[in-house]
Amino acid sequence: MTELWLMFSAAFLAATLLPGGSEVLLVAFINDDKSAWLALVIVASLGNTLGSITSYYLGTLGRFARSPEEMAKGKYKHSLALVQKYGYWSLLLAWTPIIGDLLCLLAGWMKLPLLRTSLMILIGKSIRYILVAAMALHWL
């Protein structure tokens, strides 16, 4: 049970703006107990998704800080263009390093629908953790 809480916490923190490598922890826990892989993947996916939703809400607060014109010209322009073009579908990439956190922030900033956004984040992050777990099970 302790492993599940640690996995959840690490995944949650890794999805916010704090750096973290929850995949390494997932592989280590699977290495210790291969039969727990499914519970670990579920907990990691939920924790990571909730962390991204936290970033989404931080983005909603940022709406008051920057105008759309400032966002379109600044360092966010490529990510903003991605979210503008694909909408909540772009959140399937929320698991990617660097850009994933920004996509979640921008989704909140653009006030994309929370339910659809959350579902896309969950799907993308779950697929990533399933692939990591499958590789760990195969090679360990």
Rank of each mutant, 00 (worst) to 15 (best):
M1P: 06
W5C: 03
L6G: 14
L6Y: 13
M7G: 04
F8I: 07
F8G: 03
A10V: 13
F12W: 12
L13P: 03
A14W: 05
A14V: 07
L17N: 00
P19N: 05
G20S: 06
G20F: 06
S22N: 11
S22W: 10
E23G: 04
V24H: 02
V24A: 15
L25A: 12
V27F: 02
F29C: 05
N31Y: 13
D32A: 12
D32E: 10
K34F: 02
K34D: 01
S35N: 13
W37I: 02
L38E: 00
L38A: 14
A39M: 13
L40I: 03
V41A: 04
A44D: 05
L46E: 02
N48I: 07
N48Q: 01
S52T: 06
S52C: 09
S52Y: 02
S52V: 03
S52L: 01
S52K: 00
T54N: 00
T54C: 08
S55P: 00
S55T: 14
Y56M: 10
Y56G: 08
Y56Q: 08
Y57E: 07
L58R: 01
T60P: 00
L61R: 05
R63N: 09
R63M: 14
R63Q: 13
F64C: 05
A65T: 11
R66C: 13
R66V: 15
R66H: 14
R66T: 13
S67N: 02
E69S: 14
E69G: 07
E70P: 06
A72G: 12
A72C: 09
K73R: 15
G74V: 10
G74K: 06
Y76D: 13
K77D: 08
H78K: 15
H78F: 15
S79K: 08
L80E: 06
A81N: 11
L82K: 11
V83R: 11
K85M: 06
K85N: 11
K85G: 04
K85V: 07
Y86E: 08
Y88M: 06
L92Q: 03
L93E: 00
A94P: 04
T96I: 15
P97K: 09
I98T: 10
I98Y: 14
L102A: 10
A107D: 00
A107C: 01
A107W: 03
G108V: 07
G108F: 11
M110P: 00
K111F: 09
K111Q: 11
P113E: 05
L114I: 15
T117Y: 03
T117G: 14
I121N: 01
I121V: 14
I121R: 01
I123E: 02
I123Y: 02
I123T: 09
I123A: 08
K125A: 10
S126L: 15
I127M: 07
R128E: 08
L131C: 12
A133F: 06
A134T: 07
A134K: 00
A134V: 05
A134G: 11
M135R: 00
L137G: 01
